[in-house]
Design a binder for these strands. Structure first.
Lengths: 252, 252
DNA sequence: AAACCACTTTCTTTCGAAAATCCTTTCTGT
DNA sequence: ACAGAAAGGATTTTCGAAAGAAAGTGGTTT
């Protein structure tokens, strides 16, 4: 870095473009990069996040880094002990269970309300997101051998977009934000499963599950849609749980 | 303040004693004081929180104050605009409705689980908290004229303790933390009603409502208990809503 | 060998000042 | 008079360093 200060310059490699009317501070940029990297598993669960290390890695100084870490802490991606600094939130079955069940509570309620309030745009949004997800899933499946990171992360974005579209009309900022946060938390657990492909879906047809959720939502069958959504998340959760148990048993 | 630095010294006037194994940093102390003061209405909703002002008022320097404000922002007690600093979260009917409904979603689920898991200690905790609340409520009611701040804030503490006791066995850190946060948010709206006493309870018997919730919970009647709890919160919310409308109509 | 103490090192937290940005007022040209 | 530019002041954000606490080291004693 040169000696010059630079607050608003966007960095190459930013994934989420920010709203044009909200200039990014360094703290904001640091938050986004750390958020992305923690979810991507760049830092291992439990790993201490030393400020000196982060300063070197990202080129920000303490203040913006601390601000970012504080935000991440309130989203449970980072834990902090007073006077002992920050660490990546460790993995645990217990935490994943709680995150999953809370996510089900929040998203099912949001889906219920969206089904009640949903207009044509809502339906169109779901159909479009499902289609994009389906295309990308086929694309990844068609790849011979290991799919690249780009393909997988594109798939993840589509997946998140689909789930976002389902609950988009719930009319509650709190529920939407909670869903976003809980998605990030659980995503972290899902990641090793995606890249490894070792513990793949077995007898599961995930695209079919998505389609069934969509169909029930569009047909305004709340009970069915929420039940399917909950089952969808619980299946993933159970799968991860088994893998975590297997990995720790294997002396990981 | 003298020129000396001071990290761990507790301040007089701290309400919540901290856990003994977690030494308070200045940022932690600043967070607690600001949290308390915002809820107590020391700063008006919407008021900008200039750092220079806070520095003078509390004696902390920028870093701990910013850290505290960031935490409060993620709890929606404070809003921030990039490069334009922090303000107390403004009041709005819409926000209160969302906070109330989210609180109902979260606490009803937590109550349901507590009823399923509740042991003898859970029951004892509820009975004790109810008793303490009831005593304090009678004490306040018996006071001639305006009750003092101490009496009212003691009442508030008892009230919160009672609601905490109800959901104490839900076995979900996330639900408990969310309930805590949503309590703080809605508490802010309730405050003017308490002190003013102008818009008091009308035909409401709040102690009776509490007793009915308790009875249903102890009798393990989930459906009834959650319905009563939801109604309890919605009544308060509706009352506040009317007052807010009246106040703004009166050219406030 | 385990427990204890003083010393050193490492790291977090806090401070005060500098830089960047926003906001208001004043000035300029039409 | 009025839109737009420019200056000036106020405020936030960031930096680098210093202070304070925790962890580590090595030697001494029990």
């Amino acid at each position: 870095m040169s000696g010059k200060r630079n607050v608003a310059q966007p960095m190459a490699g930013d994934t989420q473009p920010r709203a044009a009317d909200e200039p990014a501070t360094l703290a904001e940029t640091a938050y986004r990069r750390l958020h992305r990297d923690i979810i991507a598993g760049v830092f291992a669960p439990g790993q201490p996040l030393r400020l000196e290390l982060l300063k070197q890695r990202y080129g920000f100084s303490f203040s913006p880094l601390r601000e970012a870490l504080n935000r991440l802490q309130s989203e449970r991606l980072v834990v902090a002990a007073a006077l002992r600094g920050f660490s990546v939130a460790p993995f645990s079955s217990e935490e994943m269970r709680d995150a999953t069940e809370t996510r089900i509570l929040v998203e099912c309620e949001a889906l219920r309300r969206s089904i009640d309030n949903g207009d044509d745009d809502w339906e169109a949004g779901i159909v479009a997101a499902f289609h994009a997800l389906d295309l990308q899933a086929r694309r990844v499946k068609a790849i011979l051998g290991e799919p690249g990171d780009d393909d997988l992360s594109a798939l993840e974005v589509r997946h998140q977009d689909f789930h976002r579209a389902l609950i988009a009309r719930c009319r509650s900022r709190r529920l939407l934000d909670l869903a976003e946060q809980l998605y990030a938390e659980t995503q972290r657990y899902r990641l090793p499963m995606l890249t490894g492909r070792a513990f793949a879906d077995e007898a599961r047809d995930v695209p079919l599950e998505h389609r069934q959720i969509m169909d029930a939502a569009l047909a305004r069958r709340s009970e069915e849609a929420t039940a399917l959504l909950a089952a969808h998340y619980r299946r993933t959760s159970a799968l991860i749980d088994r893998n975590m148990a297997a990995q720790t048993a294997a002396g990981d």
